[in-house]
Design a protein around this nucleic acid. Structure first.
Lengths: 213, 213, 213, 213
DNA sequence: GATGAATGAGAATTCATTCAT
DNA sequence: GATGAATGAATTCTCATTCAT
């Protein structure tokens, strides 16, 4: 009996999340109003507040799970002993790119929010922590793929450089409304090239000598 | 008589632009209110509407001139016959980086606005045109710095790849409030490294053979 | 079968009343939401509407019984032939004070609601009637404690005067969150003093002659 | 030229204050909405925000001046050397009563707000300070009118007791909508009586011996 | 040319209450 | 009898913008 209601509730919640996700992605978090989300989800705006504390909670819900999945995916790849280091880097990079491009206009919210002040509320902290861990993962992958022994400083520098490429790719297409599949079909090879270029460049410069100056 | 008035009028307009520019740069377009601009410019908020149709027009006015200057600067550099190709690329890259990092919070508005729909109003078009021309400039610089003869497709690809790096650098620090000088002091060398890595990588991959597939 | 249900139903109703009572007392009628009451009562907020027409009805139900108890208590005290008149007055006063201070944040709702307009709904009338009767009781107690024969007008006047003291005591501490026991410990003697002062003053002025002008 | 506008502005501000004051008095601060105030003042609700930061500021503006006037009035009376002590007490009491009854439903806001936590915002502090000073004034007046030398504790006790009467008077009629004049005509003598009773009682008990236990 | 006054549209959020199950 | 789902009405407050002078 209750099943039906429960299911309906789940559907509503889902449609809210879906609507919010899509709208956030399409137009950005700030530009979207609760009423728009409600309309798109086919419910009253008050209903949203039944399922989510506030607009931010909606975003958080929408963010954390997928981000954690992404993190797990990247981690798993890096721990796979059967893959060569270059493959590991490219594979994790693609995981990251795929995720970010699929969640384009929320990308900024995930990765570009001002490093929250220490006293910030918990949810933001959680996100930031995850973000840092993810960057740490990429850094390790970059270091592993580079040959010579690097100073810590050099390691940071190359990691940043490699990250610039990823960040640049995503940022460039962050505002596009082109569907993910189509986008990948169109410029996927260029992304691939960018990753290869970045790694090749890092390797070369790293061998030439110092990597920070 | 009229002269004096005219001059004063010009001054007011100028102080509005100056104030708006500074505020936009400091806190971002959206976060700044017309009243704040007016207060900073030392005039009434209604006065702004005498000189500018609306907030967006103010932004546009504020954007075009600097962007055109930037464009001219990049163009001049590329046309300088005394510079080696690598230097040309790095130099224009730095012009671009410098400008974008100085105008951080407006960067998104300049370069990441959704490619305006066809029916969009004129001002946006104008901006987009300039943006495209600037990208064209960078593309030429990249191509010139690469050795082999490239197909048009390859040229585009490498240009994009190089641009990802620039975009990535800027995007990474777009939300920082760190003053420009300090930022450069802190991570300027990493930026330099990134440019060198990107070019080195492009060169290498370009030589290896095909650069798009 | 029916018995069991009936009993459970009664339990639910009771736990709602209990929860509402406590919350109203703790935080005031307005500040408490139906959902909070429901949560505290361990049922759904819709359930409340099965037993009570609306929030106001809940309050009314919650008020009448205790107020009637208070009334009975006061009445019993006054009818006790073994007590001296002063004691009767003080004792009923303390009953009243005790009740009001324990129900502080609802005090205003009980005794300070605008004298309901004639067309008001029934429940409010009922409450007001009780309130008036209670005031009548106090009036009788005051009169009994005063020596001389008083005109009706004088009686009213002294009763009011005495009531001002009671009202003042309660009102002064109506917004405090201090627990009742602690409050009494701290300022109970002052309350006692106030009652004595008021009575002594009334006696003296009553003897001096006229008590209304 | 500007005069006319300035005057109009002043009028608007005044009508807002007047409307707000009346509505607050009639129905209480919380129950009144900004839109109602605006409607009553004959302007848009946004206009209110031009003149007052927020609803609370409106209240504060509406409160402080009159309260300060009242305080000054009470102080002046107490410092008048030509008045006997009893007269001083009665006169200040009447000032207080008059003010509170005229501002009835705001009375609670002025005098019954929870003693604000220390970290509270400034305006509330200011009000509380004034409130305390006013109570201090009354306390001095009470002490001056009482004969014997009192311990500090006794002084406080009698002051509180006397204040209960004032508070009780006001509280009793706080919710009435009866116009001030009419109210005074009807029960003014009773108020007078209450003051006399309270003082007489205090004097008597104070003489009898200890006044705190 | 310049301005203070004034506004309408719209934002997030909360709450008592009703409906279908 | 009991409930979860859902809602409409309301609240404070903000902002770009337009008049009347």
């Amino acid at each position: 009996m209750a099943r039906k209601q429960e299911q309906r509730s789940e559907e509503t919640k889902h449609s809210i999340l879906q609507a919010a996700g899509q709208l956030f992605r399409e137009r950005g978090y700030d530009a979207v109003t609760m009423r728009e989300i409600a309309k798109a989800a086919g419910c009253s705006h008050t209903t949203i507040y039944i399922y989510f504390k506030d607009k931010e909670a909606l975003l958080h819900q929408l963010s954390m799970a997928p981000l954690q999945d992404l993190f797990a995916e990247m981690q798993a790849c890096l721990q796979d002993p059967s893959l060569p280091v270059d493959e590991k880097l490219f594979s994790t990079s693609w995981s990251f790119l795929r995720f970010c491009l699929k969640n384009r206009s929320m990308y900024a919210l995930f990765f570009m929010t001002k490093s929250s002040r220490v006293d910030e509320k918990e949810p933001a902290m959680e996100l930031q922590k995850l973000r840092n861990e993810m960057f740490g993962l990429l850094k390790e992958a970059v270091i592993a793929a580079l040959p010579a022994p690097l100073t810590e400083e050099q390691a940071w520098a190359f990691a940043r450089v490699y990250f610039f490429t990823l960040h640049g790719i995503i940022g460039t297409y962050a505002e596009t409304e082109e569907p993910y599949e189509q986008l990948i079909e169109r410029v996927g090879p260029t992304f691939e090239l960018a990753l290869r270029v970045s790694l090749a460049g890092c390797k070369q410069i790293a061998q030439e000598g110092d990597g920070s100056k």
